[in-house]
């Protein structure tokens, strides 16, 4: 083979990755098999993101996976390898509040409208709601239920979660109108 072409990548059992999580950049060596959720919780201490199942069903590990210019979309961080997030921007529930600690509209609505009981599903639920409202700022109740179908809640019966997402949508729309004025 001729020399001078780019060297082929090497298969490795560990890799050095660089990920921006909630605005801060981290560089670490991880095993190839490390799941993104384990990296977030155990390597960099972002324990706000939780693990609720072994089957990719519950959605409690949901984070946004994007780039520097685009917050990206909701994914189940138990079903992404940490190495696949190399170079990416990740937003967890810990990165939603403002720099002064003021809650994101979706967090505030879950708090005020009792969109949680035990709270285990809440980090994933909130991230999924943020993602949904970005694609569909004014969803119907059916669209909210459908949009959150990747997140299971064993406590609330979903009723107050749907109310909270509806209320957060209204507030986010009002904020946009405010900014346009």
């Amino acid at each position: 083979m001729s020399s001078g072409t780019a060297a082929p990548s090497q298969a490795t059992s560990t890799s050095s990755i660089s990920v921006t999580v909630d605005g801060s950049r981290y560089t670490d060596t991880v095993e190839s098999r490390t799941l993104l959720v384990h990296y977030l919780r155990e390597t960099i201490g972002k324990v706000g993101t939780v693990i609720g199942c072994d089957t990719s069903n519950c959605g409690s590990c949901t984070v946004l996976l994007g780039t520097a210019d685009d917050p990206g979309h909701s994914v189940k961080s138990c079903s992404v390898l940490a190495v696949q997030a190399d170079g990416a921007n990740v937003t967890t529930v810990e990165g939603l509040a403002g720099p002064d600690g003021s809650l994101h509209a979706v967090q505030r609505a879950f708090h005020e409208l009792h969109g949680l009981q035990c709270g285990f599903c809440t980090p994933g639920m909130i991230i999924s709601a943020v993602d949904l409202l970005r694609d569909n700022p004014d969803p119907t109740d059916d669209e909210i239920r459908d949009g959150l179908s990747g997140n299971l809640c064993r406590c609330t019966g979903y009723q107050n979660i749907v109310r909270a997402v509806r209320a957060a949508g209204a507030e986010l729309r009002a904020q946009v109108t405010e900014v346009r004025r």
């Binding site: 082929p8 298969a11 490795t12 890799s15 190839s32 098999r33």
Partner: peptide, 30 residues
């Protein structure tokens, strides 16, 4: 946690095919 494996991020289809061919049936596309 999955059993340990090697990981290769291919940058082209040719590279992916070559990696599969070199590794036999124990390799999988992700």
């Amino acid at each position: 946690i999955p059993v340990a494996f090697d990981y290769l991020r291919a940058s082209s289809v040719d590279e992916a095919v070559a990696a599969l061919a070199g590794a036999g049936e124990d390799a999988k596309i992700l």
